[in-house]
């Protein structure tokens, strides 16, 4: 009890690393995921095939295996040697999460009804107008719930960085538990609460975004 109270700064620093990892990984995954979905739904068949294979391969691989690849496999190839662990963690999370982002965005695109684009073309809108005024606004709105799911799951997945020596929240919990065998349950609840707060904050932000973007149909 005293230990976790007097060393509460360690708990906070753990969650600070978790948040940094989550923020930059989310950013990276959104960018790569958007590129992947552009390839996947685009007219160039070779790129579509490439993006589809990437998505299917990575989605069926456990995140832990990708962590082993980046943290143990890449040094054998002289890649990312001397890179800070945080950056390596972000690279790993981005490799793993971008296919899920791609699929969430694709779900959004697929939810736009064909008639919407046809009507836009019928009244003479150009490709750019159709995209920016009709298709994408609807697709982005529809992607918010699945994207939020992906980001929440990703934030929880950052805990796996603990296995590879990043002192984020889960690693901190292990440290505290090793030192204070009597307070295990309290320590677990403190860290669980930290994650719950982050998860609820993300879902709250998504809810606000959805409400703001809601349209009358």
């Amino acid at each position: 009890m005293e230990d976790i109270v007097s060393n509460f700064d360690l708990v906070l620093s753990g969650f600070w690393i978790t948040l940094q990892l989550a923020f930059w990984s989310a950013l990276g995954s959104l960018v790569i995921g958007a590129l992947l979905v552009a390839m996947r739904v685009g007219p160039v068949r070779v790129l579509a095939l490439f993006a589809t294979s990437y998505v299917n391969i990575v989605r069926n691989t456990p995140l832990l295996v990708i962590f082993i690849l980046v943290f143990a496999g890449f040094p054998a190839l002289d890649l990312l040697v001397g890179t800070p662990f945080l950056v390596k963690g972000i690279v790993t999370m981005t490799i793993y999460t971008s296919p899920f982002v791609c699929e969430a965005l694709r779900a959004g695109v697929n939810s736009v009804q064909l008639g919407q684009a046809e009507a836009a073309r019928a009244i003479g809108m150009t490709f750019g107008q159709t995209m920016t005024q009709v298709v994408l606004p609807q697709a982005v709105r529809a992607s918010v719930p699945p994207l939020t799911s992906v980001i929440i799951a990703m934030t929880k997945n950052t805990s796996i960085a603990a296995v590879f020596g990043l002192a984020e929240a889960t690693a901190r919990m292990r440290g505290f538990t090793n030192n204070n065998a009597d307070d295990r349950i309290l320590i677990f609840l403190v860290f669980a609460l930290g994650y719950i707060v982050i998860v609820e904050a993300i879902s709250g932000a998504s809810w606000l975004l959805e409400r703001r973007w809601r349209t009358v149909r």
Binding site: S159, V163, T170, M173, R174, R184, A192, Y195
Partner: peptide
């Protein structure tokens, strides 16, 4: 809401 790994570490320890 709790990461699975946190749960597993807790149960294990």
């Amino acid at each position: 809401a709790v990461p699975l790994l946190l749960l597993i570490v807790f149960i294990f320890l």
